[in-house]
Design a protein around this nucleic acid. Structure first.
Lengths: 342, 342
DNA sequence: TACTGCGACGAAAACGTTTTCGTGTTGAAA
DNA sequence: TTTCAACACGAAAACGTTTTCGTCGCAGTA
């Protein structure tokens, strides 16, 4: 085990000064051709690589960005990471991944860990607990310390920073419109309680689509689920003997539970009832019938977030502050859980 | 935006020397009580946090570990990360995640990036391309430089380092045995080509189980798939009109494709044919019928890997070298795609 | 009074870089 | 011969810590 080669060792070996070595390796014209070549040859031969930590300390940049997500065992987040990684790598950045586990405390802890020099900036999706609590002091602090921050997906209005979100209203509208387009008249909505912003917005899209098509909104066709754990049984009860021909579930989970229930009742999907979901995962793709869904393009969200962050990191500090919010379009992925157009 | 507080600034502000501040904050008895308290109060009030990068440089440890995986959009790897994160955090380590995309070059690149001071050690699962190529010089180099390395899941024999694997043979055997236990006589195997070690080992388990139960091995009942892309059609052809009552797919994908095909042929799962898979993801859980499967306990693999790595990192260098291989037991998760015991 | 010891603090080196600012040598111009 | 620029290189500071080794003043002892 050879201890890593440093400038100092090269200098000693070649009997020149450290500065000469540094300059030679960076092709400075200050150094005579002969010496330069000698040093470069030596460095190459012994595979010298500058120490990142020293560079970070010197330059006051780490060239790594931190991403904090509520959970990783979740297809959406994993695609986001993938997107972040991709553009980060292209730009010469590393990615530090932290998990908040949806806990406020872990989120704060993670930010503190990373804020002390480990990263140049953050990409973050808020923990559920944080949103409930409404305590965002850690975000404000980070920003005040000059740490750029990009919020994605689960964002909060009153923090001024870059944001990347999807248009949930339009997404909900798209979903509902598709059901209408294929001839559904009585469309049930399985959503979350309103304080989960995502559910609220998608519900709004649902209403808008109905209205635009002159279909009256019927509260009886809407189920708002509070706890994920109870969702299956609640959906079962809700759907029991309901005269409907379409269901819009605001996530994969709800949509699939709906399909199960409908099948259990002896009805057919999509012949009798069409079902559409939100979020596109492996499950949607391979379920039987495969699920028509609104896709969130997690990859693009990740890419845009990383781009936004790096842009902030690399701009000269003189430029004035400005914050963008990028809205990533949702897509309609038509599969087998909805009828074809009549 | 206040620029970060440093020891130097505190020292200046309080008109003492840097060393005094440092010592005071670390509760050195060298410093008089009065000064100590004053400094600590000041630091607390202005929320001083030592700069990690400077500490890393000084201590020659970064307190972060790198994990390089072939792909992140994959339930198994994502649970592994989750496990690594968990114990890493408990031990005060950060986790740098890199993706090799199953490419040899990206894997090498990633290792080089991380090896230059960014991390104290690696946790790695080999890229497919790397295994095919059989070129492991980058691993050897890292080890030679004193970088501890833990290989998991996709490991290679001839590198001497810690390893965490599952017992694929026993796993394959368990799966097959379960089919036999519930009364299956003609069990098809859908595996990969033999140079993918995972497929080979699980196949071995399959054979062993048959043998132990006095069932003759029949090459006609085995399908070896080369390319994932073609798997669906190959499975369809293979299963066409085959007289079988059980199928063991060496991954989730194969098992689910098998179920689809079998259903399409008008047979019922599990009444006519029982199907078992390998790896436990969301898909297995929520498919109809939900999939009986051999679970890999990715979480535990991640935890063990991290523990192994950190153990290496924190042991005193005087201790002698030794390498462990931890085998994480597979589990049988019985769901609806296999009959109950007769 | 002179010496010892100790309490309380500071100076400086070290980690590995980059960069600014010398400085010594050479050759040519004056 | 003197002067000066150009060239080639080295010294040192800086990034933010920790730690070793002084050093200074003062009290206690002989």
């Amino acid at each position: 085990m050879k201890p890593k080669l440093t400038l100092k060792k090269i200098a000693k070996e070649l009997e020149v000064s450290i500065s000469t070595v540094s300059k030679a390796l960076r092709d400075s014209p200050e150094i005579g051709e002969e010496t330069r070549e000698k040093i470069k040859a030596f460095a190459k031969h012994y595979n010298y690589k500058p120490n990142n930590i020293a560079l970070s300390l010197k330059n006051r940049k780490t060239k790594t960005i931190g991403i904090i997500i509520p959970e990783i065992v979740h297809h959406f987040f994993t695609t986001v990471i993938s997107g972040v990684e991709k553009v980060a790598n292209e730009m010469g950045y590393n990615v530090l991944v932290c998990l908040s586990d949806n806990s406020f405390d872990k989120e704060v802890l993670n930010m503190e860990m990373l804020a002390n020099g480990s990263t140049d900036g953050f990409i973050l999706s808020l923990a559920k607990e944080t949103m409930q609590k409404g305590d965002y002091h850690h975000l404000v602090e980070a920003i005040n310390q000059g740490m750029p921050l990009v919020l994605f997906d689960r964002v909060v209005e009153d923090i001024s920073c870059d944001k990347v979100i999807i248009d949930d209203v339009t997404g909900g509208k798209k979903a509902t419109q598709h059901l209408i387009d294929i001839g559904c008249k009585k469309i049930a909505l399985i959503s979350t309680v309103d304080y989960v912003s995502v559910g609220k917005l998608r519900t709004k899209g649902y209403k808008e689509a109905l209205e635009e098509n002159g279909i009256p909104f019927d509260e009886d066709l809407v189920l708002r689920i509070e706890k994920m754990e109870d969702s299956e049984s609640e959906i079962e009860q809700f759907l029991m003997d309901k005269a409907i021909d379409g269901v819009f579930g605001v996530n994969e989970h709800f949509a699939i539970s709906a399909i199960k229930t409908i099948k259990d009742q002896g009805k057919k999907v999509p012949e009798d009832v069409s079902v559409i979901g939100f979020t596109d995962g492996e499950l949607s793709k391979r379920f039987i019938p495969s699920l028509t869904t609104i896709s969130q393009h997690g990859m693009r969200i990740g890419e845009e977030s990383a781009r936004l962050l790096i842009e902030k990191l690399e701009r000269t500090p003189s430029e004035e502050e400005y914050y963008k919010t990028i809205i990533v379009e949702t897509g309609l992925v038509i599969r087998k859980s909805t009828k074809s157009k009549k």
